[in-house]
Simulated assay, not measured.
Amino acid sequence: MAKITFKDNPMTVLGNEVEVGQKAPDFTVLANDLSEVTLADTENRVRLISVIPSIDTGVCDAQTRKFNEEAGSIENVEVLTISADLPFAQRRWCASSGLEHVQTLSDHKDLSFGKAYGVALEELRLLARAVFVIDSKGTVVHAEYVSEATNHPDYEQAITAAKNAK
Rank of each mutant, 00 (worst) to 15 (best):
M1C: 04
A2D: 05
I4T: 08
T5V: 13
K7T: 06
K7G: 15
M11K: 08
T12P: 05
T12L: 09
L14W: 01
G15W: 09
E19K: 12
E19V: 11
G21S: 05
Q22P: 05
Q22A: 01
Q22H: 01
T28Y: 06
D33E: 14
L34D: 04
S35R: 13
V37H: 02
L39A: 08
A40W: 02
A40V: 08
A40Q: 14
T42C: 04
N44E: 11
V46F: 01
V46G: 01
V46S: 04
S50T: 14
S54W: 05
I55A: 12
D56V: 05
D56F: 03
D56I: 02
G58H: 07
V59Y: 03
V59K: 00
C60I: 08
C60G: 15
C60R: 01
D61C: 12
D61T: 11
A62Y: 02
Q63Y: 02
T64Y: 00
F67K: 04
F67V: 11
N68P: 08
N68F: 10
E70F: 02
E70K: 07
A71E: 09
N76T: 02
N76V: 00
V77F: 01
V77N: 07
E78C: 13
L80A: 11
T81A: 09
T81G: 15
I82Q: 03
S83Y: 03
A84Q: 08
D85W: 12
P87E: 07
P87C: 00
F88C: 01
F88R: 06
R91I: 03
R91E: 06
R92V: 11
C94W: 03
A95Y: 05
A95P: 13
S96A: 12
S96R: 04
G98S: 08
L99A: 11
H101I: 13
H101F: 12
H101A: 09
V102F: 08
Q103L: 08
Q103W: 02
Q103K: 10
L105Q: 05
L105N: 03
D107A: 06
H108T: 10
K109Y: 02
K109I: 06
K109H: 04
S112Y: 00
K115Y: 04
K115R: 12
A116Q: 07
V119I: 02
E122P: 00
E122L: 12
E122D: 14
E122T: 05
L124F: 14
L124A: 14
R125H: 09
L127I: 02
A128R: 09
A130R: 11
V133I: 06
D135L: 03
S136C: 01
V140S: 03
V141M: 00
A143L: 10
A143Q: 07
A143M: 09
A143W: 10
E144K: 09
Y145Q: 06
V146G: 12
S147H: 11
E148G: 12
E148V: 03
T150N: 06
N151F: 04
N151C: 14
D154H: 13
D154Y: 01
D154N: 12
E156K: 03
Q157G: 14
Q157M: 07
T160K: 13
A161E: 12
A162H: 01
A162W: 13
A165M: 08
